[in-house]
Computed example of a mutant assay.
Amino acid sequence: MSPGDDSLPISALQHWLFCPRQCALIHVERLWVENTLTAEGRVLHERADSGRPDTRDGIRTLRAVQVASATLGLHGVADVVEMRGSQPYPVEYKRGRPKAHRADEVQLCAQAMCLEEMTGRAIPDGALFYGQSRRRQVVAFDAPLRELTRQVAGEARAAVAEGRVPRPVYEPSRCEACSLREGCRPEARADGAQTWLARRIERAAVPE
Rank of each mutant, 00 (worst) to 15 (best):
P3F: 07
S86H: 12
R136S: 13
E40A: 15
S50Q: 15
L74G: 04
I10L: 13
A64W: 10
V67Y: 01
F18R: 08
P124M: 03
G126S: 04
R63Q: 06
G51E: 06
S179Q: 07
P3S: 08
G163V: 04
Q111A: 06
L128T: 00
R134T: 11
D142W: 06
P88W: 00
L25I: 11
K99I: 10
D104S: 11
D104A: 12
V206K: 11
E202K: 09
L17Y: 03
G73F: 01
P98S: 14
V165W: 00
F18L: 14
R189I: 04
L13Y: 02
H15M: 11
Y130S: 03
V91G: 00
V206D: 10
P3Q: 08
D104H: 13
S2T: 11
T55Y: 11
D125M: 01
D57Y: 12
A159H: 02
A112V: 00
I201Y: 07
G154W: 03
C175D: 01
C109L: 01
A190F: 02
Q151A: 11
V169F: 08
L62K: 01
M83P: 03
S11A: 15
P124A: 07
E176Y: 08
A188W: 03
L13E: 02
Q107C: 06
V106I: 11
V206W: 10
H75P: 06
A159N: 03
Q14T: 14
M83E: 09
R30W: 14
E187Y: 01
R63M: 04
E155K: 04
E34D: 15
